[in-house]
């Protein structure tokens, strides 16, 4: 029987965020927004969901006078993403 795909990751924007963060150690809110072409509001909501699940951490600081939000994936996030990709492979084999 096929394993259920993690519903938290099985959404376009959240999966895009996790894919970006899996490929780098740290990325800024602005960078993720540019790469995903999401609106700031929607991106914030999805980031909050990933933070609540313990998949990412968000650090807010200032670069001069400008605010800088940095996101990075946690060990739990890495594990969840790997499980998701493995499950995805099983689904693709069946299809």
């Amino acid at each position: 029987m096929l394993k259920e795909l993690n519903p938290l990751l099985h959404s376009q924007l959240r999966l895009a965020i996790m894919s970006i963060l899996m490929n780098c150690e740290e990325a800024s809110f602005v960078y993720i927004k540019e790469q995903t072409q999401a609106t700031a509001g929607n991106l914030s909501v999805q980031l909050d969901k990933l933070v609540s699940a313990g998949y990412i951490t968000v650090e807010k600081k200032f670069q001069g006078k400008k605010p800088l939000t940095l996101c990075s994936v946690t060990d739990a996030g890495k594990e969840a993403f790997e499980e998701y990709v493995n499950a995805l492979r099983d689904y693709l084999k069946v299809e």
């Binding site: 099985h10 959404s11 376009q12 924007l13 999401a38 929607n42 909501v45 999805q46 299809e95």
Partner: peptide
């Protein structure tokens, strides 16, 4: 990009 569900592909 939105919060839509995707298929495996």
């Amino acid at each position: 990009m939105e919060d839509k569900k995707l298929n495996s592909q």
